[in-house]
Amino acid sequence: KDKDLLKGLDQEQANEVIAVLQMHNIEANKIDSGKLGYSITVAEPDFTAAVYWIK
């Protein structure tokens, strides 16, 4: 199951987060929520590491 990592990002921010996570071998998903911006989700086992790397 995926957990929400970040919400309300613009496309550039979302792409930067995806890139950082991929560099650390964390699979992440970018979801277009329309006017609400983009959300990033990661698998539950990767959540703690993902939070660490996006600081």
Rank of each mutant, 00 (worst) to 15 (best):
H24R: 04
L5W: 03
I40W: 02
N25Y: 06
A19C: 11
P45Q: 15
A28M: 01
V51K: 09
V51G: 04
L9K: 01
Y38Q: 01
M23Q: 09
Q22G: 05
V20M: 15
M23E: 08
G37E: 04
A49I: 10
D46V: 05
A14N: 00
L36N: 12
Y52L: 05
N15M: 09
E44M: 07
Q22M: 12
W53V: 13
Q22F: 10
L6K: 02
V20Y: 15
T41G: 03
I18L: 10
L9T: 01
I40Q: 01
P45A: 15
H24G: 02
Q11H: 11
Y38D: 00
G8R: 04
I40F: 02
D2K: 11
S33R: 15
Q13I: 06
L36D: 13
I40S: 00
L36P: 05
A28K: 01
A14W: 03
F47N: 01
K1F: 09
K1G: 11
E27Q: 14
K55T: 15
V42W: 03
A43G: 06
A43D: 05
L9N: 01
P45K: 15
E12S: 10
I18P: 00
E12A: 12
H24Q: 06
W53I: 13
E12D: 12
D4G: 08
I18Y: 05
S39E: 06
I26W: 00
S39L: 11
A49W: 09
G8N: 08
V17D: 00
K55M: 14
A19L: 11
E12V: 09
I31E: 04
A49F: 07
G34F: 04
I18V: 07
P45H: 15
I31F: 07
Q13M: 09
P45F: 14
G8S: 05
I31W: 09
K1V: 09
T48A: 15
G8H: 09
K30G: 04
W53Q: 02
Q22S: 11
V42A: 01
E27P: 14
K7W: 14
T48N: 13
I26M: 02
D4W: 15
L9F: 02
S33W: 15
K7E: 09
T48F: 12
K55D: 12
V20E: 04
A49Q: 09
K3Q: 06
E44F: 08
F47S: 01
F47W: 12
L9A: 02
I54T: 05
P45G: 14
A49Y: 05
D46N: 08
A50H: 03
A50I: 03
A28T: 04
L5D: 02
M23R: 12
K7A: 11
I26F: 01
K7H: 14
D2C: 13
N15V: 06
L36I: 06
N25L: 07
I54F: 05
D4M: 15
W53S: 02
K3V: 14
D2A: 12
A50R: 00
I18K: 01
K55I: 14
W53Y: 08
A50N: 01
Q13S: 10
V42Y: 02
T41R: 10
E44W: 10
Q11T: 08
G37I: 05
N25A: 07
K35E: 12
I54K: 00
T48S: 12
A28E: 00
A49L: 10
G8D: 05
K1Y: 09
I31K: 10
Q11W: 13
L9P: 01
E44A: 12
A19N: 09
L5F: 07
S33G: 15
I40T: 00
S39R: 13
A43M: 07
K30F: 08
A43E: 05
Y38H: 03
L5Q: 01
L21M: 03
A14M: 04
E27L: 13
L6T: 04
Q11L: 15
A43H: 08
K35C: 11
K7N: 11
I54C: 06
A14G: 01
A43L: 06
I26Y: 03
D46Q: 06
N25M: 07
A50L: 03
V17C: 09
W53A: 10
I31Q: 05
D10K: 09
V51Q: 13
T41D: 02
D2W: 15
Y52P: 01
G37V: 07
L5M: 03
N15L: 09
A49P: 03
E44R: 06
W53T: 03
E16A: 14
A43T: 05
L5V: 08
L5S: 02
A14I: 04
E16S: 12
I26Q: 00
Y38C: 06
H24S: 04
D10R: 10
I40P: 00
L9M: 05
S33T: 12
V42T: 01
W53M: 03
N29V: 11
N15I: 06
D46P: 00
K1C: 10
